[in-house]
Design a protein around this nucleic acid. Structure first.
Lengths: 204, 204
DNA sequence: CTCAATTTTAGAATTGGTTCAACTTTTCTT
DNA sequence: AAGAAAAGTTGAACCAATTCTAAAATTGAG
């Protein structure tokens, strides 16, 4: 199992990701040449393509780590949400949005999203779709939780509402990363406004 | 004004678009090489790049025509909508979705959407964002129209609801084009289900 | 311990979008 | 109608992602 080859492989994986993370941030996705990533990771170009199918998959590995962190952070809110539908949603969405630029620049997000629609069947494309689904599920889970607490009407279609809220938030986030000058507070305010009608409709 | 040069220019534009449309459909976006488009349009590679900044802008020109047609078709619904909030929304959204694959394949949509997030400042990126905004406006206009008719409560925030509905529909459409096996009736049914809560909430 | 099988690496070759400097065509001026 | 200026065209050269194949390293059987 854990022979020399295994350790070397893990080590090379880490070196490639570290090099790519640094270069993507410094030079942007397009600006980070595979040759440079290979050089910085002390690995050949061929090796990179042995580990990742294409440049996008390297970015994908980084994005996946980021989204998983966000999902983790969200679990706390679902477990014990603020005692008010509007605040509960705003808190969860706030976690998603506020974390989003910790490790990834807007340009990296743009590229990641573009690749996931361009190549939906690539490893990263599938992983990204799965992550979106988990985020949707988490929002639906929050609605369900609020129904249990008695803050949301029990006859509400939780999954449908969760999808609606996630899809709207996601599109708003896409527009947000497309505009370099857009700011997080305005994004959150816009989403709150959009959710208001819904919050009024589903609250007891 | 309408000298020889103008006519030649218009003719070359048309030839390039015709060649690209044919080749994109035959070989897919990636499969349609610029060299082949140039050959079929009886124009040199350089000329193509004189008319369009990059390959994506050629696809962009085709997508824009398609979306404008859809916007036009939607105007009729806004002018005289079905006498029921749910049906009105479903009819408008139905027009968008049913028209969507008339000229463009799913693969072409994927590429177009990817490019618009990847290069939001390219001519096509900006045009695509503008088209999305117009679609959003049209949905909001429908809500406003329904308020005038007295089918939607007058205190409802029409623009916010329009954004919510468009953003949800758009994300659903993105997922739809990402899956080659997804079918239009199921897409429409899923969107109807998501909109149901909202429809109930805004109806008088 | 040795060596053949297997896995992995290296980097040169390929590919296809994009750029650019030289050449043509059209238009304008007189 | 001639010549200069402006506008547009051309395709070979460039660049960076990806592919391919020969060479190197690791493993495990005997």
């Amino acid at each position: 199992m854990s022979g020399l080859r295994e350790r070397q492989k893990a080590d090379r994986h880490r070196r490639i990701i570290d090099a790519a993370t640094a270069l993507f941030r410094e030079a942007g996705y397009e600006g980070a040449k595979i040759e440079a990533i290979a050089a910085q990771a002390e690995v050949s170009i061929g090796t990179i393509y042995n580990y990742y199918q294409n440049k996008g998959d390297i970015l994908g590995a980084i994005v996946s780590m980021e989204v998983n962190e966000v999902l983790n952070a969200g679990r706390g809110v679902v477990a014990s949400p603020p005692a008010n539908v509007g605040d509960a949603l705003d808190t969860l969405i706030g976690i998603y949005i506020e974390h989003s630029l910790n490790y990834l620049s807007k340009e990296m997000w743009r590229q990641a999203m573009a690749i996931s629609t361009q190549l939906p069947d690539s490893p990263f494309g599938q992983a990204y779709t799965a992550l979106d689904r988990e985020l949707t599920r988490q929002i639906s889970a929050l609605i369900t939780r609020l129904q249990q607490i008695g803050l949301v009407r029990p006859d509400i279609d939780g999954p449908a509402v969760g999808e609606l809220i996630f899809n709207n938030m996601n599109m708003m986030f896409i527009e947000f990363v497309k505009q370099d000058e857009a700011r997080i507070p305005e994004l959150r305010a816009a989403i709150r406004r959009q959710n208001r009608v819904l919050v009024a409709a589903i609250g007891v």
